[in-house]
Amino acid sequence: MSETPNHAMSRPLALVRWLNAVAAMVVVIVAVGGITRLTESGLSITQWNPITGVLPPIGEAAWQAEFELYRKTPEYLYEAGPAGMTLADFKFIFFWEWFHRLIGRLIGLAYALPLAWFWIKGAIPQGYKPRLLALLALGALQGTFGWLMVRSGLSGQMTDVSHFWLSIHLLTAFFTLGGLVWTARDLQALAQDPAERPARLTGPSLIVALLLFAQLLLGAWVAGLNAGHAAYDWPFMNGEFFPQPDLSRGWIWALTHDPFLLHFLHRWWAWVAVGALIWLARRVRKEERKASIAIHSAFGVMVILGIATVLTGVSLWVAVAHQLTGALLVASVAWGMHADGRRKALRA
């Protein structure tokens, strides 16, 4: 027996506005995460204190204590050089990591507190509670992955976080963003038609998602390995089309660790992803023209910014804009995939 939403009490449009606001916050934290990575700020806070960590160090003694903890990390020991680092330099990188964590906490509150309020008020349509709880769990998992990523760079001789953990952290954020957008679109449709059912994932959309996932994974590995610095020319890499990969430890290692090969793959797999995105955009352009335009705009800007990132020698703000546009692309693709699901249902 199918569930019928209780529209006397449910408030789908209020939930849509809430989910869209949280999705916008996720886009912001992705951009700040890019700044944190590019300024090598991620290891500046060596502890995870969910409550006391809300406030930055207060007073000279507290700052010196934090700085002393950082000076024990492999990143400082192996990369600071003979001149070391000043306290002012440390405060700069500390700010970005602290700000990144603060936004994460704010997102948690911005999601959990309204969810509890909607739940208590009976404003959540039937069938949506499990999905909203799953998104809450994803947010908690995202925070856990973030700390595991940081911890990976605090031991041994690692001077950076593991690029594997970085990719898990980033892709979980993208998956959460997609889930927020998809759920908001389902609720938007429900508000317009009480008989509307949730959209289903189609085969073509799944193919597009997998091809885009591969590109985003490559991008995360490029960021984690600083592989953007492997070449500053385009379309060639250091004057050659195909770089000479380091195969001394085999192809598997090269495909997951070699900066030159990963940079090359990220450059050219992008065009495979673009082809898939054009296919998706064309599939939904009649039913959801705005989603089609959003997809085309996002990947077009992202490609331009990707090339500009290379040609500017990984300029901070160009690279951050590239990552920010990646988040907007994920949101637009989730919108398009949802539209594709509704398109199939309407034609069934």
Rank of each mutant, 00 (worst) to 15 (best):
H163P: 11
F175N: 01
G127I: 05
P130I: 12
G108I: 09
T86L: 04
P82Q: 09
Y128H: 13
K129S: 02
A184Q: 10
R151H: 13
Y76F: 15
L180D: 01
I58V: 15
L180A: 08
F145M: 14
S155H: 13
A83S: 14
G122V: 08
P57L: 10
A62E: 12
F67I: 07
G84L: 10
Q157A: 11
L109S: 02
K91M: 13
L132P: 00
A88K: 12
P114A: 07
F95H: 13
M149A: 10
Q157C: 00
P56S: 09
Y76E: 02
G84A: 06
G156D: 05
L109T: 05
A134H: 02
S167R: 01
L166C: 04
G81K: 11
Q64T: 14
A83T: 13
W63N: 06
I93Y: 06
R131H: 04
R101P: 05
A62L: 08
T172M: 13
L141A: 14
T73G: 05
K121I: 01
I58K: 07
Y78A: 07
E60P: 01
I58G: 01
Q64R: 15
A134P: 00
Y76H: 11
T159S: 07
F164A: 09
G127S: 09
L148H: 07
A88V: 11
Q126K: 15
G81W: 12
A80K: 12
L154E: 05
F94L: 05
D160M: 08
V181Q: 03
T86I: 09
A184R: 14
G108V: 11
L136R: 09
T159K: 11
R185Y: 03
T73F: 10
L166E: 05
L115R: 11
R185H: 11
L154W: 05
